[in-house]
Simulated assay, not measured.
Amino acid sequence: MSLLNSRRQFFAGAAASVAGLAVARSAMAALPEPVYQTSVDTAPPLVPTTGRPYNPVVTLNGWTLPWKMNNGVKEFHLVAEPVVREVSPGFKVNMWGYNGQSPGPTIEVVEGDRVRIFVTNKLPEHTTIHWHGQRLPSGMDGVGGLNQPAIPVGKTFVYEFEARRPGTFMYHPHADEMVQMAMGMMGMWVTHPKGKHPHISEVDRDFCFLLNAFDVEPGSKTPKIATMTDFNIWCWNSRVFPAIDTLNVRLNDRVRIRVGNLTMTNHP
């Protein structure tokens, strides 16, 4: 064997070892304990105690997912699973969602944050999460079969990327979308600016919610997943009148309302 070939093999082996070590460290990272929420009431804003400061949003009839800091990285844990959502008092619907709710919890970060999201699949089929509107490396974009393998039942996949730009975004599956989104798998994502921003003004009250729709026949508790236009329940964050909470502000407050739309008639 020539010296040149030996050097090539040595450096190739060393590179493979370093790459393998990096993957192993990521794979062995301890999963943060998932946080669950079953109340349909609007939760108070989650004031950050770690990481960069920001003015938190209020999710209408929802909540913000807590995180833990790990060597400068914000770590979240989402659990995709069947849930029961109270759409209005006495009217409960079998849905799929995240961490006990549909929609899932809002994720709030700050521009430039490094985020790591552990996604555990407790659905009866494979899934992914697509971070709708984010600028991401291809392997983190969550399109099953295109830029990542789908997450098998009972397994956890780790997404990691930098929140590059501020704004209002959403997350949802790109795996069997017609079933999973029709069953309620979606959530809001808010990236706050790290400083003054020319297009994002400072406000006193910041709210967010998703528009979503379902077709649930009278007497049934499970949405019809094949419906494309003939819905009978139009929701704000999976709640309908008279069960939608109020948006509470003071006179002269400057208010921002972030509205995401993942109804199945519009999104595909």
Rank of each mutant, 00 (worst) to 15 (best):
S2N: 14
N5W: 09
F11E: 09
A12M: 10
S17W: 13
A19F: 07
A19R: 05
L31E: 13
S39Y: 03
D41N: 15
D41H: 12
T42H: 02
P44M: 02
P45S: 02
R52I: 00
R52S: 07
V58S: 06
W63K: 02
N70T: 12
E75A: 04
H77Q: 07
L78F: 10
R85P: 00
F91Q: 10
G97K: 05
E108A: 02
R114G: 07
R116W: 01
I117F: 00
K122L: 12
H132P: 00
G133D: 02
Q134T: 03
P137Y: 14
S138V: 13
G144P: 13
A150L: 03
P152M: 09
V153P: 01
V153G: 07
V153D: 06
K155V: 04
Y159W: 10
F161H: 06
H172W: 07
P173M: 11
G184T: 08
M185Y: 04
M186V: 14
H197G: 03
H197R: 05
P198L: 07
H199W: 08
H199A: 11
V203Y: 09
V203W: 04
L211A: 02
N212F: 03
N212H: 05
A213S: 13
V216D: 05
G219Y: 01
T227S: 10
T229R: 14
I233C: 04
I233Y: 10
I233M: 06
W234P: 00
C235M: 08
P242N: 14
I244H: 05
T246A: 13
L247S: 06
V249F: 15
D253N: 14
G260I: 12
P268V: 13
